[in-house]
């Protein structure tokens, strides 16, 4: 089986003091540590598990600049046979339609049976990459999958719905499946493993050949703002015991909870 997985290199913004850049539409990214998007870690693990179970080869794709190759090396370290990176400066700050066009361009004429990607990315969270890629390739697509099993030319998947519901879907291959977190337990990738993977080649594709002309206007970010400061917030100060007591008193006052 020919399997592909798409991964993205994203900033870790936990505890970061984010600031909107001068253009008013993007965030200042300087100084933030980057890592593989959390959803993609699950997609990668699932891809490796499927490859181990049914056999075949696994290609890892990434749309990003050279610094983002770290995430591709993780793919190679856990069992991807090939890694492909596509980039062009025109993709910097691209909208999800443009990114999907680039993903389509990276896949080229290789007919993959199964393409996995994370259900969304932790930076912009559009959740559109997988479905748009399937659309561009003209193949099936299932999103938010938290359980899957390949059976011959079909995949049986469970989609996560709201309220704890699940929807079971049988889908014919080829297909793009976007993976929800929790589907598996992504393995640890050791530093030694990543170092060994540095010796493996990464195919770099020039993204300049991807036609973005019809995609740019489909989604335009007008402006970006920090959430407005709310009113009525009270910072409780003191020892943990004092804070807990005050907290309890406030909950009792407010009623309805205790």
């Amino acid at each position: 089986m020919k399997i592909a997985v798409f991964v993205k290199h994203v900033p870790d913004v936990a505890e970061a003091d984010l600031e909107v850049a001068a253009d008013g539409r993007t965030l200042k990214g300087a100084g933030l540590p980057f890592e593989m998007n959390e959803w993609d870690r699950f997609a990668l693990e699932e891809a490796v598990l499927i490859k181990d179970e049914v056999g075949g080869d696994l290609t890892a794709f990434l749309i990003g600049d050279e610094a983002a190759e770290e995430s591709l090396r993780r793919c190679l370290a856990v069992g991807a046979d090939r890694a492909v990176r596509l980039w062009d400066e025109a993709l910097s700050g691209a909208n999800p339609f443009e990114i999907a066009a680039a993903m389509r361009g990276a896949v080229g004429d290789d007919n993959y049976d199964l393409i996995l990607c994370g259900a969304q990315s932790s930076d912009y969270g559009y959740g559109m990459g997988g479905p748009l890629l399937a659309e561009a390739l003209g193949i099936n697509s299932v999103a938010l999958v938290n359980k899957m099993k390949v059976e011959g030319s079909k995949v049986l998947v469970t989609r996560e719905l709201e309220g704890g519901w699940g929807e079971e879907v049988e889908v014919n291959l080829p297909a793009v499946i976007s993976i929800q977190t929790g589907i598996n337990e992504p393995r640890y990738v050791s530093i030694l493993g990543i170092k060994k993977a540095r010796k493996k080649p990464i195919d770099v594709l020039d993204g300049a050949g991807v036609d973005l002309s019809s995609e740019g206007g489909k989604l335009v970010v007008e402006s970006l703002q920090a959430p407005p400061l709310g009113e009525g917030a009270e910072f409780l100060e003191g020892s943990p015991e004092e804070v807990a007591e005050r907290c309890l008193a406030l909950l009792k006052e407010a009623g309805g909870v205790l």
């Binding site: 540590p33 393995r187 640890y188 050791s190 030694l192």
Partner: peptide
């Protein structure tokens, strides 16, 4: 560790050490 199957809490600590 090279096999990748280690306690999740330890995994988080290791990844944080590298990243942060």
């Amino acid at each position: 560790i090279e096999g990748g199957r280690i306690p999740k809490t330890l995994m988080d600590a290791m990844e944080s050490s590298l990243k942060h």
